[in-house]
Design a protein around this nucleic acid. Structure first.
Lengths: 212, 212
DNA sequence: ACACCCATGTAAGGTGTTACATGATTAG
DNA sequence: CTAATCATGTAACACCTTACATGGGTGT
């Protein structure tokens, strides 16, 4: 009845496609690379990774080759054109949870594959989201501070501080992005073949309202 | 074969028992209170909450009373002695994931129910854990910085900063805890119902090794 | 001979959310 | 009357980890 796309929320698939975009690899190698490159904020187990690779290969997003260089079985996965399109789609798509910490971090890790306007758009949206969370927290602190014990107060204050810092950080990223966008209008389309273009027109950022 | 305790990891249970300890409530009310008191770092859906209440009631950790004050059915849950013991057990137990962000925050929110030494112990352990994560991150930045793009570097640096700040915050909490411990040795055993105050205890910190 | 990394995979279980189903009461 | 809020619950699905099962290669 209600047409859900086709399953998962694709943080894992994004990570996998993103790394395989650079270098074809086996599942085992991939896991190691994932923990080197993204391990700071995210990790997977084989129990997720291997089935994911199978799914993607079955869907034609990856090509498998059983490596001839070792006598033991070793599946080397390579990104197909279809897989590359999927990657860009996942990187740009809003799935309703795309602003949450882990999802956003994962996208940010692949920001270089986005066009500058798309980057700016995503940064602004994340900023707006955090601003809302911040407002929520402030509101709940205002109404309940009297009834809170010292530890809860510490928890709240620390949470406020963390969110404020994250917003400030985003502001720096946004400012930098804008500077480089304005400095060289219309230059690097993030990838020579511009595989997945946003359906947007050249100008008019049309950014989401800012709470602050 | 290998005797796992009895199921879940009990973040939800801890939250539920912790709030019901203060006031008996229905599931509906409970959800609202949870979002007011713990919503800053955690949330639940009814789909988790109601089954959890049933489980706890079935196990004898909660007593149910169908409220006579409203004509519509309304189950008011009250903590039993058994439930209170479970609460304290969950609050002190190390389950192998007890140092992760959400788990730790949840415990911290109920710190006033712990003895001062137990508080100090948990704060130190969390600090050690964060210190390790920090070291990991630093190591991976050292080895890979050259090969990282600007956005990944930002992600890493932001992560480093966040962890450092969290450690500094813990240091403040630890220092305060120690001060109040030393200031007034041997007084209230963690639960004579004074709403917001940091209690205390004798000497012998006996703290776990510090990574830093 | 043994240990240890490489390499792939599956089954079971944990933990949670969303969407649905149901209905009473209250405020306008 | 109708909309909102109170109130409870279930089924399906999403997503992940752990523990197990299996076996080749490499070093000592």
């Amino acid at each position: 009845m209600n047409h859900k796309q086709e399953g998962t929320c694709f943080v894992l698939e994004l990570a996998v496609l993103g790394l395989l975009k650079e270098t074809p690899m086996s599942g085992y190698e991939l896991k190691k690379q994932l923990s080197v490159k993204l391990g700071a904020f995210w990790r997977v187990s084989y129990g997720s990774l291997y089935p994911c690779l199978k799914r993607l290969a079955a869907a034609g997003d990856l090509e498998v080759e059983v490596s001839p260089f070792t006598s033991r079985k070793k599946h080397v996965y390579r990104l197909t054109d279809k897989g590359n399109r999927l990657f860009h789609q996942l990187l740009e798509t809003a799935d309703g949870h795309e602003l949450e910490q882990d999802r956003f971090s994962m996208r940010l890790a692949f920001f270089r594959y986005l066009r500058p306007e798309a980057r700016l758009y995503q940064l602004e949206r994340r900023r707006g989201y955090l601003q809302e969370r911040l407002a929520d927290l402030r509101a709940s602190v205002r109404t309940a501070r009297e009834r809170m014990d010292a530890y809860t107060i510490e928890l709240m204050d620390h949470g406020l501080d963390e969110r404020e810092r994250e917003i400030a950080w985003l502001d720096r990223l946004i400012a930098r992005e804008r500077r480089s966008t304005e400095a060289q209008p219309e230059q690097n389309p993030a990838e020579p073949l511009s595989p997945a273009q946003l359906p947007q027109s050249p100008r008019d950022p049309r950014l989401p309202a800012q709470t602050g």
